[in-house]
Amino acid sequence: MKAVFPIASCLFGLYLLCMNDYAHALIDEEQDAKASSISAFQAKPPIPSNAERSDSYKKILFVGNSFSFYNNGIHNQLGSLIRAQGEWERGENRMRLLTLSGGHIHEHLDGLANQLKHDPRPWQAVVLQGHSNEPISKRKQDRFDESLSKAIQIIKERQLTPILFMTWGYKGEPDMAQALRHAYEAQAAKHQVAVVPVGLAFQRAEKVFPDINLFVKDVLGMSESAGTERRLTYRDDIKHPSAAGTYLAACVFYASLYQRSPEGNVFTAGLKNTDAHKLQTLAWETVSEYFNYR
């Protein structure tokens, strides 16, 4: 069995060194122009090239909410991509979810600490996924910042690798997507941890493949108009992932963690082969450009 932490250290060593400069740049930016437009933010946190390809992330715990557990879960989708490539090793690979519907990071702190303390089987990495708007909501930002710091500390105290799940903006809200990008990248720089750019892939796919629906509507209730047939009504904010959305997220995680393309993978999560291939390709393009993979 490979030594996990030396490999992880090699992978993230350059990333962490570069993050020091990136963090200082972000602090200066926020102090000088905190209210500036998020859409103008262009910095990309670096990560090592694929000279050292990561095969060490075999035991991953995903912490989050419905963005992670919809459609049989991000962990199962990622695991299926790995299995379909013949890379899953029984007894070595393990992926689980620790989720709470509508959950915020602060609501996971006790459960995360308890899980890591008492689970007899070791983990290698923990993915942290916040509530859909807590990183950018004025009302929630401070608590998110404080809670994420505590969660990362809990993970690092167990000598595990924290990874941030950059979530997506609601359907048709590119400004929200950019604000989330800024928020997660700032946290990644502050704590010197990696961030997986799922939100950027969603934003790109909405533009490039408008025929592939990445979202599902949430039911609000029934119409009450007199003299008309009662019909379902839906929430204005369309945010939860469809099967295609969760599949895209899994492809982005596969490409980011293992530094190779999911293109050609025979697992399609029930999507049409053509749609699955489009999302595989888009995931790799997004990740390889973001991390400068070759």
Rank of each mutant, 00 (worst) to 15 (best):
L257C: 11
E263P: 01
G245N: 10
S242V: 09
S225D: 14
A250V: 05
C251F: 04
E206T: 05
Q259V: 08
K207P: 01
F253K: 05
K239D: 12
A250P: 01
N265D: 09
L220K: 15
S256G: 08
Y234L: 04
F267H: 07
R230D: 11
G264I: 05
G264E: 01
K217Q: 14
D237V: 12
E263K: 11
N213D: 10
Q203Y: 06
Y234P: 13
A249Y: 00
F253L: 12
D211M: 07
T233H: 05
T233F: 09
Y258V: 12
P210T: 09
C251E: 04
A243P: 00
R204F: 11
A250N: 07
R231M: 07
K217F: 03
A205K: 00
L232P: 00
E206Q: 12
D236G: 15
G245T: 05
A249T: 15
T233D: 08
V216Q: 09
G264Y: 06
A244C: 06
E224W: 02
N265H: 04
S242E: 04
L232I: 02
L214D: 02
G221T: 12
N213E: 01
V219D: 04
R231K: 15
F267Y: 13
V266M: 00
A250Y: 04
V216E: 05
E224M: 10
E229W: 09
A226Y: 11
F267N: 00
A205R: 02
K217R: 15
V219W: 10
L214K: 03
P210W: 02
A226H: 13
N213C: 05
I212K: 00
K207L: 05
V208I: 14
D218V: 09
S261D: 08
P241T: 15
I238A: 06
I212D: 00
R235Y: 09
L220I: 07
V252A: 03
G264N: 03
T246M: 11
S225C: 08
I238G: 01
A249W: 00
R260D: 10
C251Q: 11
K239I: 12
V219R: 13
E206A: 06
R230K: 15
D236F: 07
I238H: 06
R230S: 14
T233N: 04
S261M: 01
M222D: 13
A243T: 13
V219I: 15
A244W: 00
S223E: 06
F215E: 08
V216S: 08
Y247I: 03
F215V: 12
Y258N: 09
R235M: 06
L232E: 09
S256E: 00
F253N: 02
K239H: 11
A250K: 05
P262T: 15
L232S: 10
L257Y: 02
D218H: 08
Q259I: 07
S256R: 02
G245V: 02
A255R: 02
R235T: 13
S256F: 01
G264C: 04
T228N: 07
C251R: 10
L232M: 13
R204K: 14
H240Y: 12
V266D: 07
P210E: 11
S225W: 09
E224K: 15
G227D: 03
L232A: 14
G221E: 06
K239E: 10
R204S: 14
I238W: 00
R235Q: 15
L220N: 15
G221I: 10
S225Q: 14
E263Y: 12
F215K: 14
P241Y: 10
